[in-house]
Each structure stands twice: as C-alpha cells, then as structure tokens.
Design a protein around this nucleic acid. Structure first.
Lengths: 252, 252
DNA sequence: ACGATACATGCAGAAACGTGCAAGAACAGG
DNA sequence: CCTGTTCTTGCACGTTTCTGCATGTATCGT
C-alpha cells in the first residue's frame, strides 16, 4: 500500500462515510495507527480534512449531510456549494451572491462557523439566520424579482462601503469567448460591484452553466481568482478555460 | 462515535428540534449524561447554545421562538394582519417592520395589489417576492439575529433616504404607562427611524402584547396614528389607551 | 419543606496523542 | 556495486484528553 494510495483511500472514506476513525482504518488497512494519524495530520494541514480527537471529519461537516439534502437542489450545485463553503475561513468575511447555488452554499456552511457574510439577497440573509455564529450584513436597495436580489444605484452604493476576503459569485453562463454572463444588466453591474470589494472572487458554476452564454457580461476572465465547477475537467470547454489561465476548482 | 461528531450532532439536533434534553440524548446515543452535559457546557462556552436546567436551548431563545412562531401564526395575528393589509392603498408606499405579524401582513396582501413595500427584514422581502406587482425596497445593514431585521447605523442611514405614506410597526409590548416597547435598543431606534419616514404609523399589536412592556421604549403615544389589535375594546388597558387619545382599529 | 432530579467536581482507567528513535526501503551519486 | 542520504514506518514512552462513576451540592416540582 503506497502512501499516496492510502491518502486517497482516506479522502474517499471521508467523503463516503462522513468521518474517519483512526483506529478502524488502521485495523482495516493493516497499518499502525501512527501512520493513519500522520496522514490525517498532513491532510488537515492541506485543509482537506478536519482533525478531531479519534479521527477526522470533513472540512465542512455539511459534506456529510449534503447526501441527505441532495434531493432539494441538484447534485451538481451541492457539490459546487460544498467546495465553495470550504473556501470560507474561520473569522473571514465573504460576499455571497444570490441564487440557488449560493443558497446551497449557506446550507453547506458548518453550523458553528464564525464568519461574516455580506449579501444583497434577502433569501440568503433569511437562510443565514439559522447559523448562530455568522454575522450577516445585508446590502439594501431595490429588489429585482426575477433573481430576488437588491440591485440598482442604492445597492451599488451600499456595496462600496464593505470589503471582504472572498466573493462567491453566481452566473448563468460560462463561455470561453463570451466570458461570465448573466441575463440582466443591473444584475451584472451589481455582481461587478460586489466582486470589486473582495480580495478574491470565485465563480460558482455548476455543470449546466458551462459552455452557455447570456446577454450581459459580468467580468472578464482575469477578474476572477477561480471557477468552482462539477463539470468534467477533461471537457473541452474546461480545458480551454484552463489553457486561458483560469484556475479550476473541481467539485467532483 | 467521535467526540467532535457528537458535538455536531448536538448542534444539528438543537437547530432541528429547537431544544436538547440531556437525558434523552444520552439514552439515544448510548453515552452517559455526564458526557452530554460536558459537551453542552463546552458549546455554551463557545456561545453555540444556551445552557438550561435539563438540557440546552439555541443561543438566542428568540431564534427558536421565531422559527416556531412563523410556522403557525396565531389567529389574533392573522386578524391584525388582515386589517393592516387593508390600510395599504393601490399605488401607495408602505414601510413594513419585521416580525411574524408583519409577515402575516404580507400574506394578507391581495395578490394583484400594486404598491411599494419598504422593509428592513430579509424575511419579509423574501416573502414579497411572490407578489408580482409589489415593488420591494430593501433597507440594508447589520442583521440582528433574534429578530431577523437590519439594524444599526448603516440601516438607520439607509432609512433616511426613503419616504412612505404608511408605516406598519411591530412591537413586543403595549402598556398604558411604558408605552410601545421592544426588547432591544437597536431595534427600538430602528423602528423610530422607520416611523419617522412615514406620514402615518400604525402599530400591529395582537392581544398577547397588550398590557405588557419590554425594556426599550420605541415611541410615545403621540408618535403613532393608531393601534391595530384584536384585543377586546372593553378591556381596561384598551379603554385607558382610548382615553389617552390613541386611535384603536379593532381586528375582531 | 421535602424528595427527586440535575448539576459540578474530583478521580481513575482507558484511549488517543506527540515525539524521539531505530530499522528498513527508495534513491542518487560515485 | 557500494555508500550515504532521505523518507517512511512501526514501536516505545511520557503526556494529554476523554469518559464514566462517585460524591456532595444546587435546583426544580410538589
């Protein structure tokens, strides 16, 4: 059993079972608990798992319960959301866009995580009420019905007064030529304003968005730090994006 | 069962059930009550739950209350909401406070009514999405968990930029001497700021609020146009208010 | 006021942990 | 092919953490 092989096994086990018990794995693989502990320590160091007494848990405990929730939202969006939730650091500040994928991100956030979420979506804000340690800052403005987010001059102005480490942006189209697009000009402007207030911007792009384009450009490729998607990395569109220097965070 | 896993379980249980009974959980998980108590003590120490005799409750009792209250709006609130919804005129602009009664007002609004609603509650805004002809303006700011509304300096500032015909205000206490009161100073200030931006202010006061007082004064009696309540008009408290010149809109 | 229940504390055994160490494998260079 | 180096792995040891039990105390309901 190679060390790397063992690591993969641990990650797979973690994804499947939702937890790892060091003792059990050691017995199952016929190796010492020390080795398992060492592996888990390394994985935790890379942020791939959360070390706890007796074993390890997924970085976001919500990965386990996404199995139970996947009936609610499409599986792809949940995978993307889980990865996105993993980007949110303890004590950090994140700007969260509206949309169903962003809502899935809220559900994927660990219950006890302490952080600040800035959003222009009343739906997202309402969902966050259930997260006891999340500080919520709501960006007001005229609420656009079709996407249920605050847009317009007042909202853009309000957005100028916030700053964040991370911006998680939803879009409706991800296309090699057209770039990141959405269906409404006001929304596109709002997304730009939000993205500009964060150090890093990651785009939530479940597979059905890949290769499609909508009417209004949101951001150019170099305006984002990366793309989170569950689409096959070997897919031509994705390969093309990778070639263009876009960082791809797989949500396999 | 890992210790950390148990903690997650407790938090999840707390979110789902709204309470934890140490004895029951101990039996369910097959561990000693001591361990459960220790976990609860730790969680309480981190501010993730509120320790009570026999188990634990969510950090802010209001959160759980809010969840249970919003599902079943008591008959009194529905009556009050119906009367309040009747005050909203076609094409008019109304400032709608947060809270369960205000939420009931949203549901009581005629489906096709065209008007503008200004609110600092993400919950109210989200509920209004379903009303196709209602224009929504969201007041942003820091969201206070226990009442799920935007408060604080940013919210008050944002409120200065709107004007309305009508303000429908929720309170937690209506008392002849103490006046209109609520449990949080920030909330009280916010309610004042909202009320100041409307020509008329009506208070939503279902019967259980009548005769009670909370810690912080919202408005004096002459700051409001009237009180909407389902309480018996012959009740001493109501008669006293009438004598003080407060207009009573019965929601019998 | 009293019994019942829940609680905090101290304690001891067990389990998990980190660290240092040595044996062995993989590897590079001579 | 040999040797020195590096990395991995398992073991031993002392330490920390967890858990259940026992004790005495506090709190609740009657």
């Amino acid at each position: 059993m190679l060390a790397a092989e063992r690591r993969d096994h641990l990650l797979e086990l973690l994804a499947r079972e939702g937890k790892i018990v060091a003792k059990d794995v050691a017995a199952e693989l016929g190796i010492s608990e020390d080795s398992v502990r060492r592996d888990l320590r390394d994985l935790a160091g890379e942020g791939l798992c959360q070390r706890v007494y007796g074993g390890a848990l997924p970085v976001s405990p919500a990965v386990a319960d996404y199995r139970s929730r996947r009936s609610v939202a499409p599986e792809g969006k949940l995978k993307v959301a889980a990865v996105a939730a993993g980007l949110v650091r303890l004590g950090g500040t994140v700007i969260l866009d509206g949309g169903t994928t962003a809502l899935a991100v809220v559900h994927a956030l660990p219950q006890g995580l302490a952080c600040t979420v800035i959003t222009h979506s009343p739906t997202i804000a309402a969902a966050l009420i259930d997260h006891p340690r999340v500080e919520i800052f709501l960006i007001g403005g005229r609420v656009f019905k079709h996407s249920a987010v605050a847009c317009g001059a007042a909202a853009v102005e309000a957005a100028q007064n916030v700053s964040a480490d991370l911006c998680l942006l939803g879009v409706t189209g991800v296309h090699p030529d057209a770039g990141l697009t959405t269906g409404d000009a006001e929304e596109a402007a709002m997304k730009r304003a939000l993205s500009a207030r964060a150090a890093d911007t990651y785009v939530l792009a479940s597979s059905e968005k890949i290769g499609t384009a909508s009417r209004f450009r949101v951001l150019p490729w170099d305006g984002i730090s990366g793309l989170i998607t569950d689409a096959d990395p070997r897919q031509p569109v994705i390969e093309q994006l990778t070639a263009q220097g876009v960082e791809i965070l797989p949500a396999g």
